[in-house]
Each structure stands twice: as structure tokens, then as C-alpha cells.
Simulated assay, not measured.
Amino acid sequence: MTTGPAFSRASSEQGVTQQADGRRAISRTLPEEVPVALVYNGTSHAVMLATPDDIEDFAVGFSLSEGIVTHADEIESFEPVAHENGIEARMWLRAERADALHQRRRVMAGPTGCGLCGLDSLDQALRDLPVIGTTLTLSRAEVAGATEQLRRMQPLYDQTGAVHAAGFLVPGKGIVLAREDVGRHNALDKLIGALARGGLSPADGAFVLTSRVSLELVQKCAFAGSPCLIAVSAPTAHAKRLAESCGITLAAFARGSGFDLYAHPHRIRHEDSDVA
């Protein structure tokens, strides 16, 4: 049960636009971002700035991609509690997972552009990752058109022009699920959580992002078990090397007509017949 004030995902705000033909008053719809505290067994573990919807997806996805739990059912209960200044995502973990969490404390205030703020050590930034070895393949056309398809599934972006999205692309079906947030990391966590809650396996498709690819986004992809990451923009050099080492196909600059491949291109079929 949610208590306290309700938060909307966007609001209408007043401003002034300055154009070549002069200045005039305008009204714009802007996305909201609020502090969301991830609370485990009564202890606050992290505070992230996020769009205040799909909070349970976010909480489950964050828990999975951070290695706090290995399966969604290790979260015994969830309760969102809204306060004047933000939202608490309260979770109760199974005893063994709660004990493991004490071994790796990560207390951080997470601005939307940064994924590693507040880590206790450099070792935590470079965690051991599973190696992805699935046989999933995608056609050239599916990869090239992925970000344009995702763009059509962004109602909050249509309103505001100021949020990221993450989508799940299944071969032969297109993008079957998408989530939006002011933070690119948050959008992916929400997607991972939605997949887990819906009983869908990340191994059966590719993650599609409206952002550049940072090291932590590759980490989240690897922990989730998805073999392919498709993005509208570039990867960092470290993200490319990490994708190579953990078996993830990395496609960037996917913008309709084509894309660049930076790691494990064998999952992309290049036959001309896949283009309708």
C-alpha cells in the first residue's frame, strides 16, 4: 500500500522561448524526477533519482542487476511508501540474501548521469561477470530498426523530449516490452525488473537503449543474462572491452539504415533476404 503524496511522471511548467522572431511565453510538459530510496529489511541501501512510475519494476531490476538478489522471488515482499520528499521502495529479503547484502554495502546518491557513484572500492566497479553463451541470433534488419521501433514506444518522451528508454527485442516479434526514465541506468533496471516479474527470460532477446553504452550498462546486461545490447549511440572503450570479455554482442549507432558492431558479431545474420 502506498501512503503519503502521489507523484506524477510529468507536469506542465511555464517558461519563455527565445527565437529569431522574438520572445514569448510557453508551457512545456517536463518529466519529474524524485529521490527513490531502495530499502532492504529496514535499512536504506541506495538513493537514486528516478521517474516516479514503475517503482516495483525499478526495485526488482536494481536488486537483480546489482547482485543483491539472484532471482526475483528472493524478495519476499515489496511496499512503495511515498513521502513529501520522495519514495521509499521497501523490500524484505530472504534471510540468506539479507546476510549476503551485509557483505557488500553500497550506499550512494545516484545522479541520473552516473552509474558508479558511492562505491566502496575499485573492485566493486569491476565485478566478475558471467560469460554469455546463448545461440540467439538477430537479423540485420531487426538490429538496424530496433531504436526506431523503441522510439515509437516512448509516450513520456513524446510529452517531454527529456527521458531515456530501454526495450526488449525478441527475434521475429520485435520489441515486446519497454520502460522509460530520466536515467538511462534506471530505465534498464525497470526493464529488467519488468521481465523478471513477467516471467520473461532476458536470454531470449536483446536490450535496446536510447543512450550511449557505459560500463555499467554492459554489467547490467551481463548480470541479467541478455546476449545482445543495441544502442542508438556509441559505447565507451571500456564498455566495448567488457562486452568482448563476457560474450555480449554490442551494436551501436543503430539508426534505421545500419549500425556498428563492436563485439561478438556472430549473432547478427547479414543475409539480404531478411530485408523486406
Rank of each mutant, 00 (worst) to 15 (best):
L138C: 13
L129D: 11
Y157T: 12
T134G: 06
L101H: 11
D128Q: 08
A125W: 01
D158W: 00
L136G: 04
G118W: 02
G110I: 03
A100L: 09
I175P: 07
L126F: 15
I175H: 02
A178C: 04
G174V: 13
L122M: 13
L169V: 03
Q159G: 09
A144V: 04
A109C: 02
M153Q: 15
F168E: 09
P111C: 14
A109N: 09
V163C: 08
M108R: 15
A100F: 07
V143L: 09
A178V: 10
V143P: 00
P130D: 12
V176M: 10
D158G: 13
G145L: 07
A162M: 15
L116W: 02
Q154V: 00
V163K: 03
C114S: 13
A109E: 05
L119S: 13
E148A: 14
G110F: 01
Q159W: 04
H102G: 14
L122T: 11
L136W: 06
E142V: 08
D128M: 03
A144E: 05
H102V: 12
F168G: 00
Q103N: 14
H164I: 04
G115I: 00
L101R: 06
V163E: 07
M153A: 14
G167Y: 06
A146Y: 10
R152E: 15
A178W: 00
R127W: 01
L136C: 10
V131C: 08
L150H: 06
V131S: 05
P130H: 04
P171Y: 06
P111E: 12
I175Q: 02
M108S: 14
Q149W: 01
L138P: 02
A141V: 05
P171T: 10
A166V: 09
L126C: 01
F168Q: 05
T160H: 03
S121N: 10
A125H: 01
L101N: 03
A146P: 10
A178I: 11
L116K: 11
G145I: 02
A109R: 10
T134W: 02
S139D: 12
Y157G: 09
A178G: 08
T135A: 15
G110D: 03
M108F: 08
G118F: 03
L150E: 07
